[in-house]
């Protein structure tokens, strides 16, 4: 028997999300069991299973953290836009 990771999608607008695991002898059985364990109340319309051993992950999750400042990748880097707009308007107003 193997552990299978189960993913389901609740609607067309959503991505697949991990929802749990099942223990099963093969992928067909895993699908069947996952359907009853995780979809029996219509929690989703689509279901995926994959053997846990097929899932790869970073052994050192600290490496996923950037060390240098990456604030420019986020909207809050530009939160002073209102003041900047005001400054630019004033500058435009000074023109002849």
């Amino acid at each position: 028997m193997d552990v299978y990771e189960v993913f389901r999608r609740s609607g067309h607008k959503q991505p697949f999300e991990h929802c749990g695991t099942v223990t099963a002898p093969d992928s067909e059985m895993a699908m069947l069991m996952a359907k009853e364990c995780y979809l029996r109340r219509k929690e989703g319309q689509y279901l995926w299973v994959t053997r846990r051993s097929e899932i790869h992950s970073w052994s050192d999750e600290a490496l996923l953290e950037p060390a240098a400042d990456k604030s420019y990748r986020f909207a809050h880097a530009y939160r002073d836009v209102v003041q900047k707009r005001e400054l630019a308007r004033r500058r435009a107003g000074q023109l002849g």
Binding site: Y72, R73, F74, A75, A77, Y78, V81, K84, R85, L87, A88, R90, R91, A92
Partner: peptide
């Protein structure tokens, strides 16, 4: 949406420069 902020930020810097 973020790119738009980024672009507007550059624009405003030029406009008030």
């Amino acid at each position: 949406q973020l790119h738009l902020r980024h672009g507007e930020d550059i624009t405003l810097e030029l406009a008030s420069g």
